[in-house]
């Protein structure tokens, strides 16, 4: 069997264009040997879910800084679940206040990375939670 790399979709939903974090994480995951698909800016939840299915990814990383996470993130999870991708690891990074984390995790978010998180932590987390197939 050919070598399988962890496949990650890095998604930037909402109207915000601040992509410094998303692009740094995408590059760090690539440097760590993962296959990364970056959606580009201003993707709707529907576009993100469609990309996750089409690219058959192991994980989806959602970058959001605008404060719209309580509206946008649950919708992405709903769509992923509806299309049978319950097993896809979903992580969120950006400006997410502590008090919103519990609710996001209830919808199925595996982890939230707040400002100051290191790319190494993110790489480690994905590796620990996505089983690399033999």
């Amino acid at each position: 069997m050919a070598e399988h790399h962890i496949r990650v979709l890095v998604a930037k939903p909402g109207l915000d264009g601040h992509d410094r974090g998303a692009k740094i994480v995408a590059r760090a995951l690539r440097d760590a040997g993962m296959e990364v698909i970056y959606t580009g800016l201003r993707q709707t939840p529907e576009q993100i879910a469609a990309a996750a299915l089409q690219e058959d990814v192991d994980a989806v990383g959602i970058s959001i800084l605008s404060g719209a996470h309580n509206t946008i993130v649950p919708r992405i999870l709903e769509l992923l679940h509806a299309q049978g991708q319950q097993d896809v690891l979903v992580i969120v990074g950006g400006i997410i206040p502590d008090q919103d984390i519990v609710a996001l995790k209830k919808t199925g978010v595996a982890e939230v990375f707040q400002p100051g998180a290191s790319t190494e932590e993110i790489v480690k987390f994905i590796r620990s939670r996505v089983k690399e197939p033999a």
Partner: peptide
Amino acid sequence: DLPTLMGYDSDHPLAEGEVGKC
């Protein structure tokens, strides 16, 4: 806010969740 910066009115579907936030 972001909808205004992107030329969308507050009642545009893409403005959902972003009105008055940034």
